[in-house]
Write a protein that binds this DNA or RNA. Structure first.
Lengths: 197, 197
DNA sequence: CGATACTGTATGTGTTCGCTTACATTGTGC
DNA sequence: GCACAATGTAAGCGAACACATACAGTATCG
C-alpha cells in the first residue's frame, strides 16, 4: 500500500484559499483557472479534490461559517466577566462586523440558490447561525429577566437581518462606519432585550 | 425625417420581461440568448436598446424597485382610514412580502456589486427605499407619539434588514409562511414603535 | 528494490457566452 | 414615390469557460 493519501489534508489546506477567492470574486468570476492559480496548483488537482466547481463553492461556504463561529467562540473564551456573552458578541460585531468580507460568499450563494445543493447548504448554514444566536439570546435573558415582548426565536432571525443589512450597507457604502456601528448597537440591544430600556 | 424612433417605447415594453428573466435566472444564467428569446426578439435588438448586458441588468434593477414602490403607493391610496400608512404597509408585507420573487434580482446584484455601475445602482435603490420607509415611520410616530428608544433612521434600516432576512428565509425554505408572517409582524411593530407595548 | 498509487505539469476540447456584422424589409416625411 | 433611417433576420466570431486527458515524477510499502 504505497504512499498514503494526503487528499484530506490538501483539501483542508486549500479551503481557506478557495473561500477567499469566492469571497473576492463571487461565483461567476471565480473561474477554475483563477482558483487553481490562487491555490498554486493546476486545475486538475482541484478536480481530484472535489468533483466539480460547485462542490468547491459549497465547501467554501461551509468553511466560512465554521471560521466565523470559531471566531465568536474564541472571543467568548478570551473575554470573561464583562456582561453576558450576547452583549460581548454585539459589542464585538459593532466594531468588526463584516470586515473580512466573508458575507460576500453568502451573497454569491444566494444568487445561485436555484441550485438545490447550494440552497441546501445555505439552509443548513443559516439554521446553525440561528441556533447559535438563539442560544446566546436565551441565556442572556435568563441572566437578566425582563418583560419580553419579542420571542427569542424571532429576535434571533431579526439579528441575522440586522447583520445582513449592515453587510449590504458596508458593501454599497450606503452607511458610514460610525452609522453602521450605531445601527448594530442600538437595534441589536433592542432585539436582545426584546424590549426597550 | 423618415420613421420616428420607437426605441424609448420598446425599451419600456421589454423592461418587465428582462426583470422577470434576471429575477428567475440570476445574472449569470440570464444569457443574452435567453433574454432575447423571452423578449421575442433577436439578440442584436437588445444591443440596439442597451449598450451591453450590464446596462440591461441595471435597468431591470431600477424597474423592479419602481414597480415595488408603485405597488405600495397604490396600496396606500386604496386603503384609507385603518391605522397609519406604516401599519398598513406592515400588514400588507406580512401577507405578501417577496411573493413576486423580485428580491432575487437584488441578490444577483449584490453578488455583482464589485462592478461600480451595479454597486452605484444598488446604492441609489437602497437609499430610495430607506427614504421611503423613513418617511412612513416618521409620520406614523408623529400621529401616535411615544417614548422612542430607537431613532427612526436606524429603524428604517432595520426594517430593510427584516425584509431581507424574510426574503432569505423564503428563498431557502428556512421558515414556514406562518413563521415568516409572525416575524414581520412582531419585529416590524417593535421597530415601528421604537419601543415595546 | 520495485511495484504501485499518489502527486504534479502541460496541453487539449467541446461548448457557451457576449457581442458583432451583413443584409433584407418596412414605414414615414417630404 | 422615393430617399432614408428605423427595424428585423440570420449567421458568425473570438474569447473564456468547465472540465478532461496524457504522461512524468515521487514517496511509501512489502
Amino acid at each position: 500500500m504505497p504512499r498514503p493519501s494526503r487528499i484530506r489534508e490538501k483539501r483542508e489546506s486549500l479551503l481557506p484559499v478557495l473561500a477567499d477567492a469566492f469571497t473576492e470574486l463571487g461565483y461567476r468570476r471565480a473561474t477554475t483557472a483563477a482558483l487553481a492559480e490562487r491555490c498554486g496548483v493546476q486545475e486538475n488537482i482541484l478536480y481530484r479534490l472535489w468533483p466539480d466547481k460547485k462542490a468547491m463553492f459549497v465547501a467554501a461556504i461551509e468553511y466560512v461559517y465554521d471560521f466565523s463561529e470559531q471566531t465568536w467562540l474564541r472571543l467568548l473564551e478570551r473575554r470573561r466577566g464583562e456582561g453576558s456573552a450576547a452583549q460581548k458578541l454585539l459589542a464585538f460585531e459593532a466594531e468588526h462586523h463584516g470586515e473580512f468580507g466573508h458575507y460576500r460568499i453568502i451573497f454569491a450563494g444566494l444568487s445561485e440558490a436555484d441550485d438545490p445543493d447550494v440552497r441546501e447548504t445555505l439552509r443548513r448554514v443559516y439554521a446553525r447561525f440561528h441556533r447559535f444566536l438563539l442560544g446566546q439570546i436565551v441565556s442572556h435573558r435568563q441572566a437578566a429577566p425582563a418583560p419580553q415582548a419579542l420571542p427569542a426565536d424571532l429576535a434571533a432571525w431579526a439579528v441575522i437581518g440586522l447583520g445582513t443589512v449592515s453587510n449590504i450597507a458596508r458593501e454599497l457604502g450606503a452607511l458610514s462606519d460610525a452609522d453602521r456601528r450605531r445601527l448594530i448597537h442600538t437595534v441589536g440591544r433592542q432585539l436582545l432585550e426584546g424590549d426597550s430600556r
